[in-house]
Amino acid sequence: MISEVQIDVPIEKIISDWDFFDETILKRFSTFRPVGQNIYGIRAREVAATAIVDPRKGKLENIVLSRGGVVKVDRAPLEMVVTVGGTPHRVRHSFGYWHVNDMDELALAIPPLPGETLGRTLVLMQTPTGSEGESFAWYCNECLTLMHEYHYNTGRDGFDGFWRAETAAVEGYNSDVRHRTCPECGHINPLGYCWNVSKDKPENTEARALW
């Protein structure tokens, strides 16, 4: 057997995060963490054949906004789903706005290993640079007219400011009922809410249950 000479040093001394799925470093990716050219969100989740379950939010239901309307995106374990940049998308009951990212996003769920109860879910997106960024947007829940948008220039201002931008976007949208009132059909949308449930006020919790 031919072999190449390897260094005789524990891998952790050379590469601290050599396995992002590792239990001990998973928490570093519990929100989103930029590493090199991509941004990673990795979580321990219940991954069953027909559902991915967030312990605090329940069964996750992904939807995208297409030219034909709202489309449910079924997720299956071990299936990679790439949402192309520019496509409005959201996860019902998880974040109360449409995320419109200039960058592509890849989602994947991996079932638990034998003896484990939780698998892994991954959201991967390209690190924006220059004028690339993302929007928090709200469309009329009845006729899909764009009603309100808050843009964050992630490439210029950095991913560190993303969660502050999200809070500002949601608070701004909720601050005036006119933002939630459709100029076309008059429908009034429920309030928006942030991804992190700990930011919820009672009215946000109520909205999270609604949509």
């Binding site: 995208v64 906004l65 297409s66 030219r67 489309v71 299936e79 990679m80 790439v82 192309v84 592509d104």
Partner: peptide, 25 residues
């Protein structure tokens, strides 16, 4: 807003042999 045909790509792990174009991945 994109057309339905290009808003997402799906690929099952371990299935397929070859490189797949999934937008900028």
């Amino acid at each position: 807003m994109n057309d339905d045909a290009v808003i997402s790509h799906r690929l099952a792990m371990g299935q397929g042999d070859g490189w797949h174009d999934a937008s900028r991945y």
